[in-house]
């Protein structure tokens, strides 16, 4: 029995070797290219990038009966685009967004986007609600997008749906 297990383990190991071999054989047909390409671009440590939900956090609370506060919290070394921050409501009966007040961000001039505002630090967005007296539950849909400063990469837009109950 033990012998059988040993033999099947050896067969598996040999098979893995077989899998590895074709991969090695698939290396560039021009080995010179592969050595020249090493370090071709700026070396970035992709593994060091945070997961989107850790890079950009969102906390929502009520400031009062008609005002929501959304805390947008980029991790250290990350920033959010102000103009990519959006809020909407769904499953909302008798309640609607009246106005969204986003604080000013750091201004930088982008060649294509022109003047841009970014949030490299946590900010509070205030969302004024118009509500009917009997309005109760709704879902806040927040979308936002940001980048990592040093690594020079941007994340996909993030969309979060948060169920809320009016106070």
């Amino acid at each position: 029995m033990v012998k059988k297990r040993l033999i099947s383990s050896l067969v598996l190991a040999a098979w893995c070797g077989g899998v590895l071999q074709p991969a090695v054989a698939q290396q560039s047909s021009a080995p010179g290219l592969q050595s020249r390409v090493a370090g071709l671009f700026s070396s970035k440590k992709e593994d060091e990038l945070l997961e989107p939900d850790d890079a950009f956090k969102l906390k929502v609370s009520f400031k009062n009966a008609t005002t929501l506060v959304a805390d947008l919290i980029p991790a250290n070394g990350y920033y959010l685009y102000k103009d990519k921050v959006r809020f909407a409501l769904k499953d909302a009966s008798g309640v609607a967004i009246g106005a969204v007040n986003l604080p000013p961000g750091d201004v930088k001039t982008d060649q294509f986007f022109g003047k841009m505002e970014t949030y490299p630090r946590p900010v509070k967005a205030e969302i004024a609600l118009n509500r009917a007296p009997k309005a109760k539950d709704f879902t806040l849909v927040a979308t936002y997008q940001g980048c990592h400063i040093k690594q020079g990469v941007c994340y996909p837009p993030i969309e979060k749906s948060i169920k809320m109950t009016l106070p």
Binding site: Q34, F41, Q151, G152
Partner: peptide
């Protein structure tokens, strides 16, 4: 990708 069709590098971030 090299002329034989193999991916030979991946760069995350701005190209040098």
């Amino acid at each position: 990708i090299d002329p034989s069709g193999q991916r030979i590098s991946k760069t995350v971030g701005i190209i040098n």
